[in-house]
Design a protein around this nucleic acid. Sequence first.
DNA 1: GTAACTCGGATATTCAAGGTCCGATATAAT
DNA 2: ATTATATCGGACCTTGAATATCCGAGTTAC
Lengths: 155, 155
Amino acid sequence: MLKLNRTTEYGLIALRHLSQRQAGDASSAREIADVYGLPFDILAKTLQRLKESGIIQSAQGARGGYMLRRPLDQVTLAEFLELMEGANGVVACAEKPEHETACEFQSKCQIHGMMRGLNTRLKAFLSGIRLSEFTAEKISPEPIQLENFSRQVNS
Amino acid sequence: MLKLNRTTEYGLIALRHLSQRQAGDASSAREIADVYGLPFDILAKTLQRLKESGIIQSAQGARGGYMLRRPLDQVTLAEFLELMEGANGVVACAEKPEHETACEFQSKCQIHGMMRGLNTRLKAFLSGIRLSEFTAEKISPEPIQLENFSRQVNS
DNA sequence: GTAACTCGGATATTCAAGGTCCGATATAAT
DNA sequence: ATTATATCGGACCTTGAATATCCGAGTTAC
Ligand code: FES
Ligand code: FES
């Protein structure tokens, strides 16, 4: 139940990676994919999406890559999930305006109001969690091995 | 994001229906499907599942049907969702024991711990919501039209 | 110019959810 | 007893979204 998309996990892993790099330091999609063993193509699309939303920024061309743009403690999990998985509520009808015919059952559906209430409460819950919780803390005591991926953009 | 299964909605609608009937009054799967315009086969399976879990009970044969068994204010949304949608966490690895190899990325995954934390918090949130919230309150002021479906088991 | 990137779309594959069908069994009314 | 109406339980098909793959185009550093 309530399972997250794969891309969401990829995105979080990437954001954590970017947050651990020095400011002004860019990481390419290839680098991140290799370090964590993620499928490159999907990760690349995910990063593009994150860039469109303004959470990260990109530098094109050789030695290009991605860098954080917004501080992760200012991005809520609710915003991030909506970004990665689309604005779907617990039920399809939860996000639509009340007057629209949301689903074929709505006219007879007696729990519609409660579903909308649940959706609101769930969003409030997710809004109380910031992405920095996923990225700020260190899990492994030793820093990530970047090996030959390591580079500096401004140097 | 975090979209519920269709069967979950069907189940809630059915539970609400059952909760509105008099004690000792049974509703057949056919009746509920007709009243709300739900697909009969799927609703029937859903009701069977709810019966196995002990939330409702069944009476076989002609004039049989389903009745509530457990008070709905004693069933949490967390329990209900796990029942209807399986014990999946926000990520596949969240529900498994820590030592098991959950997914191919786990060894390199830096956010695994946070994911498990999120999963725990989400479950706590869902455990704080009881099914009675979905069924107890009246939405439409007028009672449901049962027409020729109306019947009494003990009469 | 060339290599290493991002960018963006088109397309294929995979998988679970959603839905359908059918046969077996149990009970109540006639 | 027979019939009608139920639950029960499995097999099966369909569909759509998630996932993955592929390719071409545009940018920039060297
Ligand atoms: S139609 Fe909105 S919850 Fe059922
Ligand atoms: S492997 Fe568990 S969250 Fe990534």
